[in-house]
């Protein structure tokens, strides 16, 4: 006994590390470099008046910030709705309602995004929150479906073991089911995030701002540089958020599963 306690702690650390840190941030640095190069280029070439209106730094950063806000609020809304709903729909008798709810959510996803946004604007009013609502409807599915699939695929024997040793249903949910489903749920949230970054560009149609403004301006005024800048920045933003999602997945997923 005394011998084993003398062994240093490192030997009993069985889990692999996250990997060398520069390895992880390398993609992020690439994305940042592309975004920065795009912006620097727009600042260094001669621009006409229309281009200057859309490609000055305060305008670009303002639109980027709006874009991030659109994505943030819609995703928070998705989490608030999809996680509890997904959990409820995998409990007991409510399981029977699953196909109906999934069909409803599928409708949101299958409707063309532009149509959905404009329809909502017609029904309510144009502006930021209508866009958030449209983004919510459009990006709800991945998180909801993955929450349900993640919970459904938890080995029933683990749930049985949990109940069998005296855990309450709620304790089994929080201590066993949700941790076990976490990787799948997190990947659903990641999909939701990336989906909404792309879709948020449509918010420009109903005056909610975002980087979509650059695209609509570029198209309507036939300024290709403005159009391309908008596209590149949205792509870079999507890749960066995907990177953050991937990181979150690695950090938040329970240890011991892989």
């Amino acid at each position: 006994m005394t011998v084993s306690t003398a062994v240093p702690d490192e030997t009993t650390n069985p889990e692999p590390r996250l990997g060398r840190s520069w390895h992880i941030v390398l993609p992020l640095l690439c994305y940042l470099a592309v975004g920065a190069a795009m912006i620097i280029y727009t600042q260094s070439v001669p621009l006409d008046g229309i281009e200057r209106g859309s490609l000055n730094l305060p305008y670009i950063f303002g639109r980027t910030w709006e874009h991030i806000q659109l994505v943030f609020y819609s995703t928070v809304l998705v989490l608030v709705v999809a996680l509890p709903l997904g959990i409820l729909l995998t409990r007991g008798t409510l399981r029977r309602a699953t196909p109906f709810v999934l069909t409803l959510v599928n409708v949101g996803q299958a409707t063309p995004a532009v149509g959905l946004v404009v329809l909502l604007a017609v029904l309510f009013q144009i502006g930021f929150w209508t866009s958030v609502a449209a983004l919510f409807a459009y990006s709800l599915l991945p998180t909801l479906r993955n929450t349900m699939v993640g919970l459904q695929q938890v080995d029933w024997r683990l749930i049985d073991a949990g109940r069998g040793i005296g855990m309450s249903a709620a304790r089994v949910l929080f201590k066993v089911e949700l941790p076990m489903a976490a990787p799948v749920i997190l990947s659903g949230i990641r999909t939701t995030l990336v989906l909404s970054v792309g879709t948020a560009s449509i918010a420009a149609f109903i005056g909610a701002g975002g980087l979509g403004d650059l695209i609509t301006t570029g198209v309507s005024t036939q300024r290709n540089l403005v159009l391309v800048t908008g596209c590149v920045l949205i792509a870079v933003l999507a890749l960066m958020i995907d990177w953050v999602g991937g990181l979150a997945q690695r950090v938040l997923a329970p240890k011991g599963l892989s």
Partner: peptide
Amino acid sequence: GYVIQQAGLFPH
């Protein structure tokens, strides 16, 4: 006490 096949240990 409850023991099942393949132990039913919580992998996480």
